[in-house]
Computed example of a mutant assay.
Amino acid sequence: MDLSIGEVAQRSGLSVHALRFYEREGLFANPVRRLSNGRRVYHEEDVEWLAICTKLRSSGMSLAVIRQYIELARQGPGNEHERLQLLRLHEAHVEERIRELQGALDVMRYKVRVYEEHLARGEADRLWNPSSSDAAHDDPADR
């Protein structure tokens, strides 16, 4: 079934502008077909690929690496090891980023708990104020 750019935008959650950008950047698994009037025609496989592609982007995979992966896929069988290597490298990057984010989340949860405790005790005035003379010191809420 042929899909218009508007239908693909609606189904993928990407804007028409983003779809045109993805096409210009060579990020579709297959070239986008055009009708004689110049209108783009997409297929269900394009929508499926866009779902994968947007997850790769949201995980931090660069456009260059996505493009490299697509080029390998377009070449067909015989380069699966190279594709797997690209995915494994990115997987390691994502896992490291998750560890970093977990550390940041742990700090945020700790700080939220400290603030909630101080506010519950009516001790908000004891919380660190960067404009006070104690700004150069540690956050007293952490002591």
Rank of each mutant, 00 (worst) to 15 (best):
E91G: 05
N129H: 07
G122Q: 07
H17S: 11
G38R: 13
R109W: 12
D46Y: 05
I5G: 08
I5N: 13
V16D: 04
Q75W: 07
R39K: 09
V41S: 03
S62T: 12
S15T: 13
A120K: 13
R83V: 00
Y115M: 10
Y22W: 03
D139Y: 06
S36D: 11
D138F: 05
H90L: 05
L105I: 15
R126P: 01
C53E: 10
M108I: 15
L35G: 09
I98T: 10
H93R: 12
Y115Q: 10
H81S: 01
I66C: 04
R34K: 10
D139L: 03
I52A: 08
Q85M: 01
Y110N: 15
L84C: 00
V65G: 02
H43Y: 09
H43I: 08
S15M: 09
V107P: 06
R33N: 01
A9V: 02
Q75S: 11
E23N: 04
R113D: 13
L127G: 02
R121T: 03
P77D: 06
D2G: 01
E123C: 02
P130K: 07
L50Q: 09
D2E: 08
A92C: 01
N30T: 13
A18T: 11
G38M: 09
S62C: 03
R11L: 13
Q85I: 00
D46I: 04
G103E: 13
L101A: 14
R83I: 00
E80M: 00
P140Q: 07
G38Q: 12
L3T: 01
D138I: 06
R113E: 13
S133W: 01
Y22E: 03
A73N: 10
V8G: 01
L3V: 02
D46H: 11
R39G: 04
H118C: 06
L14H: 06
E96M: 06
V112G: 10
H118D: 09
K55F: 05
M61R: 07
P130A: 05
S132N: 06
L86R: 04
R99F: 03
E95P: 08
Y42C: 08
S59R: 14
A141M: 08
I66K: 02
E44C: 11
W128I: 07
L35V: 04
D138L: 06
E48V: 14
S62Y: 03
E100C: 12
A29K: 10
S15L: 09
Q75V: 08
E7R: 13
E44A: 15
I70L: 11
Q68K: 14
R57G: 00
I98A: 14
N37K: 09
Q102R: 15
D106I: 01
I98W: 12
Y69C: 06
Y115V: 11
D139T: 05
R24T: 07
E23C: 02
K111V: 12
D134K: 04
L89A: 06
R24Y: 03
R40V: 01
E82K: 07
I98Y: 08
W49F: 09
S36R: 06
Q10G: 11
I5K: 12
E100A: 12
N37T: 10
E91W: 05
R39Y: 09
P140W: 02
A124Q: 11
A64Q: 13
H81F: 00
A9Y: 03
A9S: 14
E91K: 12
M61K: 08
Q10H: 14
F28M: 06
S58D: 14
G26L: 08
R11Y: 07
G60L: 09
A64K: 11
